[in-house]
Every structure is written in structure tokens, then in C-alpha cells.
Design a protein around this nucleic acid. Sequence first.
RNA 1: CGGGGCGUAGCGUAGCCCGGUUAUCGCGCCUGCUUUGGGAGCAGGAGGUCGCAAGUUCGAAUCUUGCCGCCCCGACCA
Length: 492
Amino acid sequence: MSKEITSRKDDYSQWYNDLIIKGGLADYSAVRGCMVIKPYGYALWENMRDVLDKMFKDTGHQNAYFPLFVPKSLFEKEEENAEGFAKECAVVTHYRLKVNPDKKGALMVDPESKLEEELIIRPTSEAIIWNTYKGWIQSYRDLPLLINQWANVVRWEMRTRLFLRTAEFLWQEGHTAHATAEEAVAETKQMLEVYADFAETYMAMPVIKGVKSANERFAGALDTYCIEAMMQDGKALQAGTSHFLGQNFAKAFDVKFSDKENKLDYVWATSWGVSTRLIGALVMAHSDDDGLILPPKLAPIQVVIVPIFKGEEQKKAIDEKVSVLVKELKQAGVKVKYDDSDNARPGWKFAEYELKGVPLRIGIGARDIQNNVVEVARRDTREKKSYPMEGLADSLVNLLNDIQQSIYNKAFNFREEHITPAETWDEFVKLLDEKAGFISAHWDGTGETEDKIKELTKATIRCIPLNNTKEEGKCILTGQPSNQRVLFARAY
RNA sequence: CGGGGCGUAGCGUAGCCCGGUUAUCGCGCCUGCUUUGGGAGCAGGAGGUCGCAAGUUCGAAUCUUGCCGCCCCGACCA
């Protein structure tokens, strides 16, 4: 009867899957590694997308759209990038099917239709975009070029997980071109700030801004900046990245511009992206064993109203009250749903909207109408309280703000409690096994040491925090000198 | 790619080892009545290529072989 949700304690990853499926965010599909994003999940994505889109436009970017297919000859131009993604590319080799003469009702690939050049389904769009930019940029007057695209990409991952890693996913990718390295770096950092602001202000998910070690850097980038979030099981989740690409792509695709002195130079590039993975992050950051907990600023439904009545007469009286309230709430910019469907009783609805993470639920029945109040239930704390009808819209708006802040604080406190310094290797290993979270430790700065640590513990360097204080110390593994701590964790 | 699991009604399942009436049960769905402040009750009803294909057999959800698909764990990765 009830939609049983596996508890976090019993099986964290099953809990996650239960929330996605039973909360109605997505479904498995007939395609390996690909999911169907259901209306409720897509509404969440639309809300995230709308906010981000506005932030991008406010920082001077424009949207455009580039092809899904990338000819192999273009794809391979920036070598490092091509090699980094080579293992996970879907490749189109033919353009036609025909009826299979040996098998009735079946189709086969028409061998006659082999493409002269294979088309790569974009795992990321640098290649096709930089090939295009070559035609768009001649002069310093054409710069900066600030473009974003909302798109789907395909990465043929060995193992997939709903939202966190699917073979096809939705994302945005910004690709900018600049006249100077300084300007490109500033853009890279600016977009990192945009992402961090979005994560913290809208997702109510605290993040650590940092820079990736060379090992974890985007293929083809000189520097990869990132925001790292901590999930409730203590694992890290990379929630967004912003790359300073130097002149790598400009050189690979021969994109040059004339400066004021008529001197030719290659342009400087950035790229940055966040994906539907953010939905996975959102789910794991806040939700509990009863279902999703969504931040009010992104929730598809912020307030749900459930009528409780005996007989048509009561229902009518409730309808009247509610229609006024709904109007007020809409005027106050609140996304409200009045669920007067008759196929479920109130108790069922309560449980259902808790599962779906609706921040506030209003119960209204005959006795409330008599007292001119409603019962308001908070999803995050599960607290129930009566509120007077008078000024209710304002009270609810305040409550929504309160919830937004309160789930942020909760996530923030959790994270702070789960960042632990380690001074010795033994301590490091012990912490990884016994305490969930990030470990702050010294590292000698070499890729070899990082690889070794990963091999021994599965922990990786999540980032070198941007606001790091310099501090002398010794590498946790090799004992070599180090001048700052970095954050280690097991990651999604 | 290695290891494990699963495939029976919209969903979740029993039956399979040991072949044999009409394939089990719950949820959901339809109709009616009663209900409605935490996942309603009663009564009646509809709904099935038992993943696909071949084989064994008088007879296959059940046995054999082959295939397909999805999920989970690990290596790769956002």
C-alpha cells in the first residue's frame, strides 16, 4: 500500500533510487543507461534552468545552439580533449536502414549507407563550437564572445546512475572567447561564482569553491575550477565546473584575432557547465527517509492545499475559502496547488506530497473554517501549526523563506561537522573508514602521490579550496613538504 | 568488461527445485454504497503473448539450449 522507501541507514544508494522513482522525478527507460525525466522532475529542471539562464544573461551571455553531431576530423583536433573523451563516445557510422531480407519484419543497417566520415555524438561541444568560432572572430572588436547553449550530450559510461551519471544528459555549456588570458581567467572565476551562488542561494546546498589538481582537470584545460558539495553519506559530488582553456582550442582550430596594433594572436577560451546531475545533488543533499525535501526556491509546487471535508456542502465552503487564498498566493508569486481530487483521501495525499518534497502543506477542513484558520505543515521539520486566514499569504511566504534558509543551515552544519583534518597517513585511512566526509590534509602536489592515494583508498582530491590559508606541513603519504591543505574524499 | 540479481496484469509478487484442472495474492483500475483531520471499508467487476525463440513431452510459467533486456556491485567518468 504505502510506497516503501529504503532508509538511508539500510542502503543509501537504494534510498536514492527509491526517491527518484517513487517521488516521480524519473523512470528507467528501455534504453540502457538512459532515463525518462518525468514531468515533476522536468519541472524541477526547468526551474533550475530558468534561474541559471537569467544569471547567464545578466552576466552578458547569449544562448545559441550547435549541432549534436561532430565530424570525427573536428573532434580529434584538440588532442588532449579528444583523447579524454574517446572512450565514451557514441559514433554514427551509417545513415540508413533497410528491410532485412532474411528476417521478416526486421530492419538492418544498410551497408550501402556507410558514412565517409563518422559522426561523433557530442560528449561536449568544444570542437564543433570552436570550429564555428573561427568564422566569427577576426578582430578584437569581436571579443569577448560570450555564448551558452542548453543541450543534451552523450557519454557512454560503463555504469550509470539516475541523474548522477546517465548515458545521455541535459546540461548547459558556456563557451567564451577573449582577447587576453586575464580576461578569460576572470570569466572562468566569474562563472564559478555564478554556480556557487546558484547552488547556495537556490539549491540551499553549500559548496566549496576550488581548483582541481592536474589529475582531475578537464581534458584540454589549463585550469579547472569547481564547486564541490557534500552528500548526506559524506561523499563528494562535483556540482559544476568552469574551465580556463588557455589557447589550446584556439590553436587547434586556428582562431586568431587582430588586436588594436594589428598584431595577430590566438584567442583565450573558457568553458563551463552544469547538468541534470544537479537534481541528483539536490535530492541527496536534503531529503530524508520519508521522501524528497525540495528547497522552496526550486520546488515545482511550493504550497499544496488539501481539503478535508464531509459531504458536498463542506467541500463547497472549503472551495470558496481556498479560491481566495489561491489567488492571494499566486499574487504573492507562490506556486500553489489545490488538490481536491476525489481519488485519494487526505491521509494519502499527505504522504504523497511529503514523498514529493512539497515544502508546505495546508490542511483545511470544516473546523478550520469555523475558526478562520488553516493547518500548515512544514516538510523539512514536519512541524504542524495553525495559522489564521488573516494575512496567510504573508505568513506562508515567510515560512518558505525560513525553510530555504533552514535546510541550507542544516546542510552547512552537516558539512562543517564532516570536514576533518588528518595529520598522519594512519589517521587519514582511519577517518575514511570510520567517518563520512571530507578530509583536509597536506599533499606534495604531485600526480603520482594523488594516484597512489586513490589506488590505496579510493579517495581523490576534490579540490584545492580557493580561500585556502597557506600553512606549512608534510604530505600525508610521502612526507614531502607542502604549503597548504587540500580536500580529499570519496566521490560520486 | 568482471561479479550478482531480475524478467509472470499498470505496479509489486506467489508458483518453478519435483511439468498436469480455469496461473496466486496485494496495490492500483472500473461500478455502487458508506467514508474523508495521517496511506478508508464492504460488495461486485475488468485486466495475462508467464521477456523472446527453438527443443524435450500426450501436456511447459515450470525441464534443456540459445538469445534479448533491465537493475545492482566494481573498474572508467560529470
